[in-house]
Nucleic acid binder design. Structure first.
Lengths: 219, 219
DNA sequence: TTCAACTTACTTAATATCAGGTAGGTAAGT
DNA sequence: ACTTACCTACCTGATATTAAGTAAGTTGAA
C-alpha cells in the first residue's frame, strides 16, 4: 500500500529489469560496432548504470556477449520452433515468415550479421556459437526439406544439404545489402523470388493451378 | 657494379616493397580481426617495421584501411573487367569463374566479408566504400544480365535488378559459411546449383509446355 | 667525379587517452 | 544479520599517434 512511490520494488525485479536494459543496449552497440568496436562504457551509460555497475551483472565483456547471444538464441528458438512444429513440412513458408519478421527488427539482424562475420576469427568469443548455429539451422531443417522434396513440392535435383546452405546463405547475403539500403532492398520480395525458383516447376500440379511466378496471365 | 651486396637498392624500390609488405599484412590482420580488432602494432611487426615506421607510409590506421581497400579494388577491377568485356553477355559464367577464383584466395574473401559487415555502421571508415561497391557491382552487370534475359538464356520472370541482388547476396552468404567450414562448403558447386536454377527451365524442357504469358519464343 | 645539401625511411622515446576490470564502500532489500 | 545492487576511486595495460633524431639514398653544382 505504501510502495506506490517506489518506481521499482523487489530486488529480483530490479535485477531483471536492469539486466534487460543492459542486454538491449548491448545488442544495440554490439550490432552497431561489433564486439571489438563496442565500448562497455557506452553500453553501461545507455543502460543507466556505471561501468562497474554493469560488470556486477555481467562479469566481463566476453560474458556479456555470450549472454546476449544465449538470450537471443533462446528467444529466437521460441519463435521458430512452433513454426517448424506446427507447419512441419512447410519449410519454405516458415522461412518466408522469418524473413518477414526480420524486416521488422533491423537491430537484431544487424547484431547477427555483424557478429557472424567478426566471429569467423577462431579466437573471437562468438566463433563456436555461430559455427554451431549454422550447423543446427541446417540440421534442424534437413528432415523437413527432404520430406518436401519427396512430396514433390520442392525440386529434388539439388541435394537437400546443398539447398539448405543456399537458403541460409541467401538470407545472410540479403540482410547485408538490406542493412546498407533498407529502403532499396525488399528482402521479402527477393526471398520470394528464390522460393519460387526452388519449387519444382515440372512437378507442379493440383494444389497450384497457376504456374508459379506467372501473375502476368492469371490476374 | 658494387651493389650486388645490397638486398634492396634504390629508395623508390624499397618504398614500393615495404608498402606492399604492409598492405599484405594489413589484409591479413584486418581480415582476421576486422578494422577495430586489428592492431597497428601487429601489422607493423609482421611487415618488418616499427609502428611509427608504418605510419611513415600510411599516416593513420584509417588511411591504411582506405589504401588497402583502394588497392584491392584496383586489382580486382583488373581481374573482372577483361572477363566482363571479353565474354560480354556471359555473366553467369564469369561470376562462376569469380567464385572459383575466390576459393583460391581465402584471405581476400575474409577481408571483404568481415569488413563489409563491420562497415554497415555509418561511422565506419569503410561505409561509403562498400555501399558504392554494391551499387557498382549491380549497375555494371545490369546490362549484361538484361541481354541474357532477352536472349532467353536466363529466366525473365525475375526482374534483372532483383536477380542481381540475389546473386551477390548468395555469393556473400556462401562465403560466410565457407570461411567457417572451408572443407565442408563447396562454393563452386553450390553456386552452380543456383546458376542452373536461374537458367530458364521452360526453354530446354520438351514435355513441359512453355508457361503462358511469357514471350520466350524469340529463339 | 665529388662533395655538400636535401630528402626519405626509418628508429627510439614519450604521450595522451582509453578501455576493461578491481577494491572497497554504502544504502536498500530480504 | 545478511545479501544484493549499485557507486566512487583506482589500476593496468593497451593503442594510436607525435617528437626528435639518425643513417642511408638522391641530387645538383663545382
Amino acid at each position: 500500500m505504501s510502495d506506490h512511490t517506489r518506481p521499482k520494488r523487489t530486488q529480483s525485479e530490479r535485477t531483471r529489469l536492469r539486466k534487460e536494459q543492459v542486454i538491449r543496449e548491448a545488442i544495440r552497440f554490439f550490432g552497431q560496432h561489433g564486439f571489438h568496436g563496442a565500448r562497455l562504457a557506452d553500453i553501461a551509460k545507455a543502460a543507466g548504470v556505471t561501468e562497474p555497475g554493469l560488470l556486477h551483472h555481467y562479469p566481463s565483456k566476453v560474458q556479456l556477449l555470450m549472454d546476449v547471444l544465449a538470450e537471443r538464441d533462446r528467444v529466437d528458438r521460441e519463435r521458430l520452433n512452433p513454426a517448424e512444429r506446427g507447419e512441419a513440412g512447410n519449410l519454405l513458408a516458415s522461412l518466408q515468415a522469418l524473413v518477414e519478421y526480420n524486416q521488422t527488427v533491423p537491430g537484431l539482424v544487424q547484431l547477427f550479421t555483424v557478429l557472424v562475420a567478426e566471429s569467423i576469427d577462431e579466437q573471437h568469443p562468438g566463433h563456436q556459437f555461430f559455427m554451431q548455429r549454422y550447423q543446427n539451422l541446417r540440421r534442424q531443417s534437413l528432415e523437413s526439406l527432404r520430406q518436401a522434396q519427396a512430396r514433390g513440392e520442392i525440386r529434388n535435383d539439388i541435394p537437400a544439404e546443398d539447398l539448405l546452405v543456399l537458403v541460409f546463405a541467401l538470407m545472410d547475403g540479403l540482410q547485408i545489402q538490406w542493412l546498407f539500403e533498407p529502403d532499396k532492398i525488399n528482402m521479402v520480395r527477393l526471398f520470394e523470388h528464390f522460393t519460387r525458383l526452388v519449387k519444382e516447376p515440372s512437378l507442379n500440379v493440383s494444389d497450384n493451378p497457376a504456374p508459379p511466378g506467372q501473375q502476368v496471365s492469371s490476374k
